[in-house]
Structures are given as C-alpha cells and as structure tokens.
C-alpha cells in the first residue's frame, strides 16, 4: 500500500500488457482488446508518458481491427464491428492524430445506422440498446466532426426518458439509476449542449451520497465502493461543477490504496487483482482531483484535455485545481 502514485510502476505495467500472447488471459480478453488499448494509452497520457507505447504499432493494430463489411471497428482482428470498439478506435486514432487514416464517411454512416426510432443506439447489427451505446455514438461523431449529422432532438428525447426521480439515469428507459449510466448520459448531454435536461441539485445530491466512509464511491445506493465507479461519479460531478460536494482527500487516499505496489496497476478496491480498466479510471480520477504531476483529463470525453481543447470540443466542466 502506498500513499503516492507509483507512476513508473504503472507505466511499466501498461507496457507489459499483451506482451505475452501465449497467456490464457490474452485470449480470454480478446473481446476487450481495442478498449484496453484506449484505456492503457489514455492512462499513459494522463501520467505524461504517451510515448511509452510505440505510436505506429498502435495505429497499425487499430487499423487491423477494421471490419470492412460493417464499416466499423471490432475488438480484435476478425471480430465483428461494435460501437464500443469503434469509439475506442476513434479515440486512439484521435490521440495519435491519425484520424485521416480512416474512411470517416463510412464510420459515420455505421454509427448513424445504429440509431433506433426512439433515439437510443444499438451496439451492433443485433440491436441490444443501452445509453452506453448512445454515448459512444455521440462522442465518436463529435470527435469525427460529424455531430451535425445526428438527430439531436430524438437523441435528447431518449436521454430524458431515462431520467429517474433521483436525478440519475439508467441503462434504458425504466431502468434504475447507475453511476456509469449517469456519466454516459451527462457527458452525452454536455456534448449536445443540453445539460438543461438535468436536475442538477438532485443529481448532485445523489452523486455526493455515493461516497462511503472509507473514501471510495459506489455506483448505486447500498453497494460496495469501486475505483471505476469513483471515476463515473467524479467525472459527472466535474461536468456539473459539483466536485467540491465530496471529500476529495479521502477519495484520493482510497484510489492510491488500490495500487499494486509491487507490479503496478490499480484494482477495483484494495487487495484485488489489478487490470488496465481500473488503472485508467484510478489515474483519471486522480487527475480530476488535482493530484500533482498529472496531465488534465477531459471528463466529457475521458481523453487528454489539451487534445480536446485543440480540437475545439471543450465544454464548461471544472476539475479541482492541480496541486503542486
């Protein structure tokens, strides 16, 4: 257990991921590979070590996941296109300023083709719908400079139909509020300049009540704390300018206590196995909390803030000031 961020260890941990391709877990996690590339790269950017992974190699990997039949990206070569991996591919290419390598028109059409009449988006041709997929669509279209092709009214109407009395949002209309879904809905509304749909005092209250006595945050009432939920809650609060409504010092201590101080990486809670997903969301949370020495993270796109600003996409969120 450590009370400082073990940046060098985490960088090494991310560099070593996927090196051992004979490993069972490498195959077990193939369906998440593209997301993992995005999680690792973004964590490195926040820790100011973007160059720790070879850019050209990464770009080539992303391009090898192109599904030419569907016009989107799969999670791994040979896997079907899905909106989750397509957003990750767009994010990775944007970070490496390589969006010019893809057929933007086809990707935009793939995404737009997944919208249902209700306004929600499906993840792929088989039609499972979820506000996560709606966020993927809105974020990717925005990064690709094609947000004006989206039917905004229908999209916002669907988001509003997922809002609950507690101020939060669920996976689909009728579903219980859940921190991850709150983030995707809040961030999508931020991109669409429609935060007026949100009842800020009520949602701010619900989000603040996610913090538990040990400093960690949970994703729903009466559930356990988790580093990734800490990020979903935190980024939503940053977008609503309510980050001061929780105890940032206690949350910082909780995230730091979930580090593996021998081999690097961050887990969901202290003592558990680390993974790259929780490593990103741990580091991203610390960035929003003003942890010293980190780069700013944009909570709307979960990408480096300087890049989003250069692309002209920055919204009015507010993180805590960077400490020295």
């Amino acid at each position: 257990m450590s009370d400082t961020l073990l940046t060098d260890l985490h960088v090494k941990y991310i560099q070593n991921l996927g090196k051992n391709k004979d490993d069972l877990t490498y195959h077990m996690t193939a369906h998440l590979r593209m997301n993992a590339v995005y999680w690792g790269l973004t964590a490195l950017c926040v820790m100011k070590h973007k160059d720790a992974l070879d850019a050209e190699e990464t770009i080539e990997y992303v391009m090898s996941c192109w599904d030419d039949e569907a016009g989107g990206f799969g999670a791994h070569p040979g896997h079907d296109a899905h909106i989750l991996s397509t957003l990750s591919a767009v994010q990775v290419l944007a970070i490496h300023e390589a969006l010019a390598r893809i057929d933007v028109t086809r990707v935009v059409n793939f995404i737009l083709g997944l919208q249902h009449p209700s306004g929600v988006f499906a993840g792929d041709q088989f039609g499972e719908t979820d506000t996560r997929f709606l966020y993927c669509a809105v974020s990717a279209l925005s990064l690709l400079g094609a947000i004006d092709r989206l039917d905004r009214e229908r999209t916002v109407t669907y988001l509003a139909s997922c809002r609950n009395f507690d101020g939060g949002f669920g996976r689909v209309a009728g579903a219980e509020s859940h921190a991850a879904q709150v983030w995707v809905c809040t961030a999508a509304l931020a991109i669409l300049d429609r935060l007026d749909v949100i009842d800020v005092p009520t949602l701010g209250w619900w989000l603040a009540e996610r913090q538990l006595p040990n400093g960690g945050l949970n994703g729903r009432p009466e559930k356990l704390e988790d580093v990734c939920y800490s990020y979903w809650v935190l980024s939503s609060m940053a977008i609503l300018n309510k980050l001061t409504w929780i105890d940032s010092a206690a949350l910082t201590r909780f995230i730091l206590s979930a580090q593996d101080s021998e081999d690097g990486g961050i887990s969901d809670r202290p003592g558990d196995m680390v993974d790259v997903f929780h490593t990103l969301f741990g580091v991203a949370g610390l960035s929003l909390l003003g942890y010293p020495g980190l780069d700013d993270l944009d909570p709307v796109y979960c990408m480096p803030a300087s890049l989003i600003e250069r692309m002209g996409l920055k919204k009015g969120w507010k993180a805590l000031p960077r400490r020295l």
Binding site: M28, T29, A30, H31, L32, G74, A75, G78, H79, D80, H82, D124, Q125, F126
Partner: peptide
C-alpha cells in the same frame, strides 16, 4: 471460454 466473446454469439445467430 469467455461468454463475452460476442463475435461468436453474432455468428451463431
């Protein structure tokens, strides 16, 4: 085998 291997579910359908 990870049941999250979504491509195989798609293929099956």
């Amino acid at each position: 085998i990870n049941p999250e291997f979504y491509t195989i579910w798609n293929y099956r359908r």
